[in-house]
Amino acid sequence: MKHAFVPPADLEPLTRHPKAAAPGRHIALHHSTCFGCGDDVPLGLHLKVMAGEGLTVDAQMPVQDWMQGGPGVIHGGVLSAAFDEVMGTSPLLVGAPVVTVHLEVDFAKPIPLGSDLQFHARILGSERRKIYIDAIAHLGDPNAPVAGAHSVFVVIDVEKHFAEHFDKRVVL
C-alpha cells in the first residue's frame, strides 16, 4: 500500500508497561457507551482489542449490514473509526492514555459486508508526547491487507483533558 505518512527516523523506542495486559488478553478501555469499544451502544463497533506480543495489538470486527457505504461494502468512515479505536488502545501497553492527533487510512480493496475484518497494529515509537502507530486490516491473510493506517497520538492527562466534558457518573 502506498501512503504519504513518514514517521520521524529518530523515534524513541518504548517498552511495555509492567502492568499492561498480557498477550492474548483483552485491553479494557473507556466506558460502556464508547462507540468503538462500548457494550451499551446498540450500533457501536463493539471492538475488543487484544494485547499481542511486544508492542502490538489485534482485534476483529464482523462487517455488518448497518456499516454499509457503497453497495455491499463497508463505509470508509466506519473503517476509519475502527482503525482509530484499535490504534488508540495500543498505547495502553506502554501505560499511556492518548488522543488522536493524526489518522491516515489507505483503502486498498473493497471490504464486503458479512466479512470478518481483522486488525493488527504496532507501536513504532515516540517523540516527546507523540506516539506513532501503524496498522493493517485483512480478511484472514495478514499478507493480503485490504486497508492500512498510520497515526499519531498524543499522551494526555485524562482528567485534565476531558474536565469540561467529564460526567462524574462515567468511570474511565
Rank of each mutant, 00 (worst) to 15 (best):
K2S: 15
H3K: 14
P8D: 06
A9V: 08
D10F: 10
L11I: 08
L14A: 07
R16W: 07
R16N: 09
R16S: 08
H17S: 14
A20M: 02
A20K: 01
R25M: 14
R25W: 11
A28G: 11
L29C: 12
H31F: 13
C34P: 07
C37D: 03
D39E: 15
D39C: 06
D39A: 13
D40K: 15
P42C: 12
L43F: 15
L43Y: 15
G44L: 09
H46W: 10
K48F: 07
V49S: 02
M50W: 05
L55E: 03
A59G: 03
M61A: 02
M61G: 02
M67E: 03
V73H: 12
H75E: 03
G76W: 04
G77T: 10
A81V: 09
F83G: 05
E85K: 02
V86I: 06
L92P: 00
G95K: 04
T100A: 12
I111G: 08
L113M: 10
G114F: 11
Q118E: 13
F119A: 05
A121I: 01
R122I: 06
I131D: 00
I131R: 00
I133Y: 00
D134M: 02
A135R: 03
A147K: 11
S151M: 00
E159W: 02
K168V: 08
R169T: 14
V171N: 13
